[in-house]
Write a protein that binds this DNA or RNA. Structure first.
Ligand code: MN
Ligand code: MN
Ligand code: MN
Ligand code: MN
Lengths: 220, 220
DNA sequence: TTTTATTTTTAGGTAAATCTAAAAATTTTT
DNA sequence: AAAAATTTTTAGATTTACCTAAAAATAAAA
C-alpha cells in the first residue's frame, strides 16, 4: 500500500514516461511543485519498494508493479472525473482538482461499484481512456489538430491540456468532445487554423490547435 | 483550513462531547487509537488555533468555530454514506470506513452538489441526522429500545452502534430502519426483549436493545 | 579537450504527528 | 488527611516528507 505522496509520484512518473522513456528528476520536481532534492529522496524510497528502476544520474522508470500502481490511480482519477461531470453536473474544466483528491481514496470495492454505477465508461470528460480493473485500456491513436492538412475532416476526441483556462476557451469556441471539424485554411502569417464546426467558421491559434486531439474518420 | 488529522480530532471531540460536556484526553486517545501523550500535543495545537477551549488537566471542549468545523465533517461523512448506500448499493454495515476517508475531501462545491444529487437527505443510513450547509439539524428525540415497556409500540429510526458485526446482526433479525416493532415481553432471567416485527416474534439481548433507537409514535 | 553550465545527489535540518518513559496533577480509596 | 491509583502532561526520540546549501556527475559550449 502506498502513501498519498508515493501515489502522486508514481502517477507523475507514469505521465512523464509517456513522453520520454527515462524520466528526469527535475521534470518530476516541476510537475509536483517540489524540489529536486526531495524527488531524489522519494525515488530512492520507491526503488527500495520495487516500484521504480533507478540508476543514479540516469533518471527513473516504472517497474511492472510501479506501472500497475500508477495506472490504478489514473483509473480512479478518470472514473471520479466522469462521476463529477455525468452525475454532479460539473463542467469539464472544474473536475481535475477534486479528482486529484478523490483518486487517493483506498477501497477496491468502492471503485468497482463506481465503475458499474457510471456504466463502465471507456473515456473520461477529456477523452482520456479509462483503464479497466486489470490496468488494460486501448491505446488510442490520436492525431493533433495542428497536424491536419487543409480540407481534412475529423472528430474532436481529446485534449492534451487540462487547465481550466484552456478548456473554458474551447468551450466558448464550441470545440467540445464529439464535435466534427473541417480544416478550411491554415494562415501563413501566424499558423492559426481556420475551422468549420457545425457550419460555422472558427479561427484558433497554433497553440490551441496543438492541444486538440482528433480521430480522423475520413479524409476528402 | 484543517489537516486530515486535525479534522479527525475535532470530529472525535464533537462525538464524545455529546455524551459528557468536558472531553477527556484518554477518551480521545482510545477513540483515535493513539496515545494520551499525542492527544495532549494535538489539543494544544487546536487550542492555539482557537478551535477548542483547553485548561490543563481539565479536559477540552469545542469553541463555536471548532464545533462548526466538526459538524462540517459530520455532514460530509453522512452525505457520503447516503451516496454509498443509495447510489452504489453498499450495505449499511459497509459504508463507515470508506466514509471516514471521503469526509476529508476538501471542496465546498462538491458537497453542495452531492447533497443536491442525493435529494437533500435528512438522515444517513444509520438514522443519524445530516446537518445542512450552515451546520443546522433537528436534534431528534430518540428513545432506546431498552427503555420501552411491555406493549409499547415504536419505529426503528436509528442505531447508536455502527460496527459491522452489530449492523449485520440487526439485518439478519430484520431489524432495519423504518420497521415497526412492539414489545411483547421482557425476560426476567437475562433482560432480553421479546419483540414483534411484521407479525413475527424476535428475541434480542439487552446489549442489542441498548443500541436500537426508537421514535415512539403511539403507545397502547 | 578544457571550461562552463546544467542536472542530480548528498549532507544536514525543519515541521507534523507519532511514540515511550518519567514527572506532575487529580481523583479515589483507605 | 495521607496513601494509592489514575489521569494527564512533559521531555526526549522517531518517521515522513519536505527544505537549503554545497558537492558531484553529466552535458553543452568554447
Ligand atoms: Mn484530470
Ligand atoms: Mn481527465
Ligand atoms: Mn459512519
Ligand atoms: Mn452513519
Amino acid at each position: 500500500m502506498q502513501s498519498f505522496t508515493e501515489e502522486n509520484y508514481l502517477k507523475t512518473i507514469y505521465h512523464l514516461a509517456e513522453k520520454s522513456s527515462s524520466v528526469q528528476t527535475n521534470a518530476i520536481a516541476e510537475q509536483l511543485q517540489t524540489k529536486p532534492a526531495s524527488v531524489t529522496d522519494m525515488i530512492k524510497k520507491l526503488a527500495e519498494k520495487g516500484l521504480v528502476d533507478y540508476i543514479k544520474y540516469q533518471g527513473v522508470s516504472l517497474t511492472t508493479n510501479g506501472r500497475l500502481a500508477a495506472i490504478d490511480i489514473v483509473r480512479k482519477h478518470r472514473l471520479w472525473e466522469v462521476f463529477l461531470v455525468d452525475k454532479l453536473n460539473f463542467k469539464w474544466d472544474e473536475v481535475h482538482d477534486v479528482a486529484e483528491e478523490l483518486e487517493h481514496i483506498k477501497s477496491v470495492d468502492l471503485i468497482e461499484r463506481l465503475d458499474e454505477f457510471l456504466g463502465f465508461p471507456k473515456s473520461d470528460p477529456h477523452g482520456d481512456p479509462i483503464p479497466d480493473k486489470n490496468g488494460r485500456f486501448a491505446k488510442t491513436q490520436f492525431i493533433k489538430l495542428i497536424d491536419l492538412k487543409i480540407n481534412d475532416l475529423g472528430t474532436i476526441t481529446g485534449v492534451s491540456q487540462h487547465s481550466s483556462a484552456f478548456l473554458k476557451h474551447l468551450e466558448k469556441l464550441g470545440l467540445t468532445l464529439g464535435k466534427e471539424i473541417e480544416v478550411k485554411d491554415i494562415t501563413d502569417f501566424d499558423g492559426s487554423v481556420e475551422l468549420l464546426i457545425a457550419n460555422k467558421p472558427v479561427n484558433i491559434s497554433r497553440e490551441v490547435a496543438k492541444h486538440i486531439l482528433i480521430s480522423n474518420n475520413d479524409k476528402i
